[in-house]
Simulated scan of single mutants.
Amino acid sequence: MNSTARIAPKIEDDLREKIIEQPDLILDDQDVMRALIAANEKTMGGNIVDLRGIAMERLEARLDRLEDTHRSVIAAAYENLAGTNQVHRAVIRMLDPVDFEPFLHNLSGEVADILRVDAVRLVLESVQNEDDPAIRKLGDVLHVAEPGFIDAYLTSGRNAPLRQVTLRQVQSGAGAIYGDAAGWIRSEACLKLDFGAGRLPGLLVMGAEDPHHFTPQQGSDLLAFFAGVFERAMRRWLS
């Protein structure tokens, strides 16, 4: 017998017993399993295809994709929950004032802060003169426009379908709506309002300095809910 023959090192007894008692510790550790598979491939030589190893690699890749999807779904769920809570708080705050003027001023104050937007404006179509003193008092929130203005604003004069909620990015806001703030508006949400039969429509516009705050790819369900609550609150003042 050759005394110089290499002797394979043995696993320490306590480690060996621990592996035997809890084999899942090895199976659940991806790095350890990769090392074992790599060692097994070396002993087989380069001319043998390990189908089990290939299958395991594919399963690992699939597991990684599933884990990524799982994390994305959880993140989206938390984001939706946060958005829902945000809109609910804004609705409660919006309904607090009992008089019309504080109701409108509240929109550009605490309601805008809760929704994290930089400007909120209400557009009403009317044949009434915008120079009316009552309207001028609300000039920082309210803009009165001629009939047909809202549809033209939403479609930019194009033959495009009208939606209750329009989310878009802009080069700058409309001066007629945002006033001095128009220059730094980069995205906006436009909520078309229906005040009932026989009344001209309205438009609630939320503007943001962040160009990614409102984009056409975003969901609009929460803003549609906000618009519905706002419509009902406005009908009380218009009745």
Rank of each mutant, 00 (worst) to 15 (best):
A75C: 01
D118K: 04
T69M: 11
L142Q: 02
V91G: 06
V205W: 12
R6G: 07
R62W: 10
Q22E: 13
Q169K: 14
L142P: 01
I135L: 11
Q86T: 15
I185E: 03
N2P: 13
R65N: 10
G157H: 14
A8Y: 11
L107Q: 14
D194S: 07
R89N: 15
P161W: 13
I177K: 02
A208K: 04
V32G: 01
L104C: 05
E41H: 11
R52F: 14
L59T: 09
V91H: 08
T84K: 08
A197C: 04
G139R: 14
F100K: 07
D31Q: 11
E21A: 13
G175T: 13
R236P: 00
M56F: 15
S172N: 11
E67T: 12
I150K: 06
R232F: 04
K137G: 11
I7H: 08
D131L: 14
A119W: 01
D131W: 12
R199P: 00
L138Q: 05
V229R: 02
A38R: 07
Y78F: 14
L66F: 15
L193I: 04
A77R: 08
A77D: 02
D13N: 10
A82G: 03
E79V: 02
W184T: 10
K192I: 01
E12G: 08
Q22P: 00
G179L: 06
A182T: 05
E17S: 12
V32C: 10
R158C: 04
Q164S: 09
G219S: 15
L222I: 04
K42S: 07
I19R: 02
S220L: 00
A174E: 14
F226T: 03
L200I: 02
L25Q: 10
V32P: 00
Q86N: 10
A227N: 06
L51P: 00
E21L: 08
A189I: 05
R235K: 14
E12W: 07
A39V: 11
I48C: 03
A8V: 12
A181Y: 10
I150N: 03
V165L: 06
